[in-house]
Design a protein around this nucleic acid. Structure first.
Length: 858
RNA sequence: GGGCUCGUGGUCUAGUGGUUAUGACGUCGCCCUUACACGGCGGAGGUCCCCGGUUCGAAUCCGGGCGAGCCCA
């Protein structure tokens, strides 16, 4: 029995840590993989596992093909989730302790999580080069993030600006567009009378004091006359212009909309397009400010209630209807977000440049490019990179307390935390030496979007672009997008030649894996039950880019295949103890050997083609089908007997073949099932299978002719097996004699004989078979309608026919008979014949295959 | 509301213009044949989501519809 757990744990101990280390000085062609740094939550989940399996398949395949492969492991540490966890753990708020102390708690917490996740990654057998591990919260890394900030600032690609940003009032920080989620909620659409002519419909009445214009559709006949007029805004004492805009939906509400600064992103568009004034009534804590007049100090929720009450009193609230609405919420805390203008740091987004670069990258699957494309094209404003948090890379900037001058850190001062240290220079404008350090920190994507640069040694890159970016499709609009942007900005080059996108993992119920749905499966659970190799083979079963449903069935099937593979290895080892592979033995190969070796080499070509195109499912399927159904079920069954009782040469040929096949199969499957492949390899061969060359096609062994012959042998054996099966005979039951007449010049009767446990003769000429008709069964469905009432008499006549006549009917396909003085021509296809065949007076049974006639004497 | 992906026996799935539609799991029957019963041999099981079009020919291409998932507004 193959014990996956035992085998895997054994090899984890045996394998050396530096087995997969990358050497810049290696003369081999380099293959650098820009692997994703996961967020260290403490658990390496199945989604990670899928992603890493795919990376590992590629890495191992490339390595076996002679590449010097870099498979680094990063950890993308910074971010709000950890801050929240740490606050929970220590029951503090981040502002209760000094910034650097809070940061330290986050660092410690994160290091523990990384430790846990490393364990899982190692257990799954990924060929990671641990010497290339990077951790974004460490000074070695974040100083590079800071350096990238400085360089982009100098190039004018980073600026400080006053701009609408998305704010989460609960987190009290701005968030990126990418961090907004949308949720359907029920809310009231309020019809509010501004004047007798102007009734607007809004879901955000609390923003009325922020109204800066009223808009209608230019073609809306109802309101054409209003355009250009002014109307007073309720609850305030000012008037706003009524304008026309194509984007107004005449069918929504009354067809009149108020534009506020800001209710949603559409408002921002209108505000920019019509150059409207700014009335900012919201503060970053989510409360209304003095511009909201008497509603100052209220939360939006309180304000909504108060304003509606006031409007109702004035008779301005005409009606309310419940509608469903998509509300933007903070991805982290699910609080509805607000849009406010604020001073923030921005990175310029040069759409065209990015798209042009993205087009030069090979996207796998190709259609994933359109996700990036539509995202970029729909972008409305630049990338906000400042965050009001603690656990993140500090922005290396100070402000002069006297003149407000921005002082950006010098490159040699890095790493730096401007909240802890002051610049070692005076203000270049006013000479003051009093500074205020920037307390805003950088968006986490600023850390992770330079991974291809960091792993290649930036700012002194050794080699660029990298070769491959593997990642999930959920972060195309973030990680992939930002990385391309940054690579262009800092290196003026695409980050990778190729990007391979994997799908998401769903639970067995077809829904996203989540704790609340209770459909989460941890990789550890699968490893515990079936081992890492089985999990890896499940991961290989999906189509690249497609979402994949976790399936125990698939894991179990993989696990059974391992047992099969192990049995084959066991058989091979048992029978080759006394044998050492020698090319000499190729000369003695028999038909079956040449057949399987040719098919094996075809398999090698096929698998290589699949691997080159990331069709891991196809590659593994081809390996499994060949191994199980061609090799084990057919070849081994055929050759077994020769190994047990053949001549010396016959046995050597068989042994050569089974060693050769095993050597190829273990190497083919090594990227998918590294533990099993290693275990099986080591039963017969020396060294590690992972340091071997990936099998290449041996053209000398390809032979269409032998494949056809081998197929025929296989078919003959299979049909004899079926014959035995139909007669309830044991498959190894001996038959007296088997005579084969075949189109081939020769066939290897030795193996047929062995496989069927019977004497086999090959005849050059079609044997002289005496055929007699034992009985015939009329097909009433034909004869009945044809002869109606005469049918009975005709059949009566037929039943009295002589053997000779029956034979004539069979061989000449028709026969004339006389019924009641009438001549009737009957045809053989109106009957089913039961024949009896005799060769040399002995009864035989005939089986036909495509190319042969098989006569069996029982 | 838009974009992308998908819809094939009970379940999952292969198949992107050409014999009888692939395989896995499950199911049924037979067989413990000295590598494997986590095995072998054999069988049953399908309106290829619906409608229309292109074509000599469509699971496959086109249009529409219905349904699912993902991403976005």
């Amino acid at each position: 029995m193959y014990n996956a757990k035992e085998v895997e744990e054994k090899w984890l101990k045996c394998w050396k840590e530096d087995m997969y280390s990358f050497d810049w000085n290696s003369k081999k062609p380099h293959y650098i993989i820009d692997t994703p740094p996961p967020y260290p939550t403490g658990s390496f989940h199945l989604g990670h596992a899928l992603n890493w399996c795919i990376i590992d398949f590629i890495a191992r395949y490339k390595r076996m093909n002679g590449y010097e492969v870099m498979f680094p492991q990063g950890w993308d540490c910074h971010g709000l989730p950890t801050e929240v966890k740490v606050e929970e753990k220590y029951r503090i708020k981040k502002n209760d302790v000094p910034r650097d102390e809070f940061r330290k708690l986050c660092v410690d917490f994160t290091m523990q999580n990384i430790k846990l996740m490393r364990e899982t990654a190692k257990r799954l057998g990924f060929s990671i080069d641990w010497s290339k591990e990077y951790i974004t919260m460490k000074p070695e890394y974040f100083s590079k993030t800071q350096l990238s900030f400085i360089r982009m600032y100098k190039k004018g690609l980073i600026y400080k600006g006053y701009h609408p940003v998305v704010l989460c009032p609960r987190c009290e920080t701005t968030i990126a567009l990418a961090e907004i989620e949308y949720r359907k909620t029920k809310t009231f659409l309020n019809y509010i009378k501004f004047s007798d002519d102007v009734v607007i419909a809004t879901t955000r009445p609390e923003l009325i004091p922020a109204c800066v214009a009223i808009a209608v559709h230019p073609k809306d006949e109802r309101y054409k006359h209003l355009v250009g007029k002014k109307v007073k805004v309720p609850t305030t004492n000012y008037e706003v212009q009524i304008i026309a805009d194509e984007d107004v939906d005449p069918s929504f509400g009354t067809g009149i909309v108020m534009i506020c600064t800001f209710g949603d992103r559409q408002d921002v568009k209108w505000w920019k397009r019509h150059k409207l004034e700014l009335r900012n009534i919201l503060d970053r804590n989510g409360k209304l400010n003095e511009f909201a007049g008497k509603y100052a100090g209220l939360t939006t929720k309180e304000a909504r209630k108060r304003i509606l009450e006031d409007l109702a009193l004035e008779g301005r609230l005409i009606k309310q209807e419940e509608i469903e609405q998509n509300v933007g919420i903070c991805w982290r805390c699910k609080t509805p977000v607000e849009i406010i203008p604020a001073e923030q740091w921005f990175v310029k987004v040069e759409k065209e440049k990015i798209l042009e670069a993205a087009r030069r990258i090979k996207w796998v699957p190709q259609h994933m490019f359109s996700r990036l494309e539509s995202w970029v094209e729909a972008m409305e404003w630049d990338w906000v990179i400042s965050r009001q948090r603690v656990f993140a890379t500090p922005i290396p900037v100070w402000y002069c307390k006297k003149c407000g001058e921005i002082l950006v850190a010098k490159e040699e001062w890095l790493p730096v935390d401007p909240t802890l240290t002051s610049p070692s220079e005076n203000c270049p404008r006013c000479g003051s030496n009093e500074f205020r350090g920037e307390t805003d920190v950088l968006d986490t994507w600023m850390d992770s979007s330079i991974t291809p640069l960091v792993i290649t040694g930036w700012p002194n890159v050794k080699e660029y672009p990298t070769h491959l970016r593997p990642q999930g499709h959920d972060i195309i609009r973030t990680w992939a997008f930002y990385t391309i942007l940054r690579s262009l900005a800092l290196q003026n080059e695409i980050p990778w030649y190729e990007i391979v996108i994997n799908g998401m993992v769903f639970g067995e119920d077809g829904r996203k894996m989540s704790k609340s749905l209770g459909n989460v499966i941890a990789p550890e659970e699968i490893v515990e039950k079936y081992g890492a190799d089985a999990l890896r083979m499940w991961a290989a079963s999906g189509v690249i880019g497609d979402d994949i449903i976790f399936s125990w069935k698939e894991v179990v099937a993989a696990s059974r295949f391992q047992q099969k593979f192990w049995s084959i290895t066991n058989f091979t080892a048992m029978n080759t103890k006394d044998y050492r592979m020698s090319e000499e033995d190729r000369r003695h190969l028999r038909d079956a050997d040449r057949w399987i070796l040719s098919k094996l080499n075809k398999l090698v070509a096929e698998v290589r083609d699949h691997m080159e195109n990331y069709r891991f499912n196809e590659a593994l399927k081809a390996i499994r089908t060949f191994t199980w159904y061609e090799y084990a079920d057919n070849y081994l069954e055929i050759v077994k007997n020769r190994i047990y009782s053949g001549s010396e040469e016959e046995r050597r040929a068989a042994k050569y073949t089974i060693c050769y096949v095993l050597s190829v199969l273990t190497r083919l499957i090594a990227p998918f099932a590294p533990f099993m492949a290693e275990e099986c390899w080591n039963q017969i061969f020396d060294g590690s299978v992972h340091l071997q060359k990936y099998p290449e096609v041996d053209k000398e062994l390809l032979s269409e002719e032998f494949e056809k012959k081998g197929e025929e042998v296989k078919e003959i054996v299979a049909s004899i097996r079926k014959y035995k099966h139909d007669r309830n005979l044991a498959l190894n039951a001996p038959l007296k004699r088997i005579i084969i007449f075949t189109k081939f010049d020769s066939l290897d009767t030795k193996d047929i004989s062995g496989a069927t446990n019977s004497k086999v003769e090959l005849v050059k000429e079609e044997p002289n078979v005496e055929i007699s008709v034992k009985s015939l069964k009329p097909k009433f469905a034909i004869i009945g309608p044809m002869f109606k009432d005469k049918a009975k008499k005709i059949l009566g006549k037929i039943s009295q026919l002589e053997k000779e006549d029956l034979k004539k009917l069979y061989s000449e396909r028709e026969l004339d008979i006389e019924v009641e003085n009438e001549k009737i021509r009957i045809r053989s296809d109106w009957f089913e014949f039961e024949l009896e065949r005799k060769i040399e007076g002995k009864k035989v049974v005939l089986i036909e295959t495509k190319n042969s006639l098989i006569f069996i004497e029982e």
